[in-house]
Design a protein around this nucleic acid. Structure first.
Lengths: 109, 109
DNA sequence: ATCTTTAATCGTAGATCAACGATGAGGTGG
DNA sequence: CCACCTCATCGTTGATCTACGATTAAAGAT
C-alpha cells in the first residue's frame, strides 16, 4: 500500500502514532462521570449549596432513592464528590481538586 | 415526615426543587461524546493536526476501521467534529464553536 | 467497464448502564 | 430493646455501548 502519498488540500499527514496518551483515559473517566443529566444536576446542586445530604438530592430529582445513590457512587468513584457520614445521613460535597482537574483537562483541549 | 429540620453542621437545606436545567442535558451530551479514551484521542489528534482523514485516524488507534468510524459518528453527532467529503475519503476536523461550548459549560461548573 | 480504495453501515455478541423495588446495615430516639 | 430514619447494596429488567468482521456505496484508477 502506497500509504497516503496523495495529500489533498485538507490533510498534510505525518503518521504520528499517538504515544498512548495517559491523560486520555483520565479525561474520559471524568467526562463520563458528568455524562448524564442527573449527575450534572447533582454536581450543580452541590456547587450551589456547598453541601447536601442524599435525601435532599433525592427530593430534587425525579428519580428513586436507589438510583440517586447509584449516581452518587459514580460521582464519588470519579473523585468529583466525596461523602462524609454525619450520623444517620451522608453529607456530600464537591471535591474542588478533582473538579479543577476536569476543568483543566477540558480547557487544554 | 418532619423534613430535615435537623440541619447539622454541614447542610443548610432549602428545598430548591431544581427547575429542570436545560443545559444539564446539553453538557451531559457533550461530556458523553468525550467520555471514551478513543474519542478523546481522536479529538486531540484532530486538534493537533487540524484535519485528518479517517484512514489516518485508524492508523493511530488500536481499533478496527468500523469501530473508529462509529466513534467518529458519535463525535459528529455531538457536533464536536465535522466531516467533509474529499473525493473517496472524508476529512474530519474540529468544530471550534461546539468545542468552545463544551469548554464554557465545564468552566461554568 | 472493472478493479481498488475509502469509509459508512449492517448484524452480532458481550459488557455495561440506568432504572426500579426490596432488602440490609447503621445510627437515633422513645 | 424496639421502632424508625437514612442510605447503600442486591437482584433484575431493558436499553445502550463497544467491539468486530462482513458487506455496501461511492469515487478513482487502470
Amino acid at each position: 500500500m502506497a500509504q497516503r502519498t496523495k495529500t489533498k488540500n485538507c490533510c498534510d499527514a505525518s503518521p504520528v502514532k499517538l504515544k498512548a496518551d495517559p491523560t486520555a483515559g483520565e479525561l474520559a473517566e471524568l467526562a463520563w462521570a458528568i455524562a448524564h443529566p442527573a449527575r450534572v444536576q447533582i454536581v450543580r446542586l452541590l456547587l450551589a449549596r456547598k453541601a447536601c445530604v442524599c435525601g435532599e438530592i433525592v427530593d430534587c430529582l425525579p428519580l428513586a432513592q436507589s438510583t440517586v445513590s447509584q449516581h452518587l457512587k459514580i460521582l464519588k468513584d470519579s473523585g468529583l464528590i466525596q461523602g462524609d457520614v454525619d450520623g444517620p445521613r451522608v453529607c456530600y460535597c464537591i471535591n474542588p481538586q478533582q473538579l479543577h482537574r476536569l476543568k483543566a483537562l477540558v480547557a487544554d483541549l
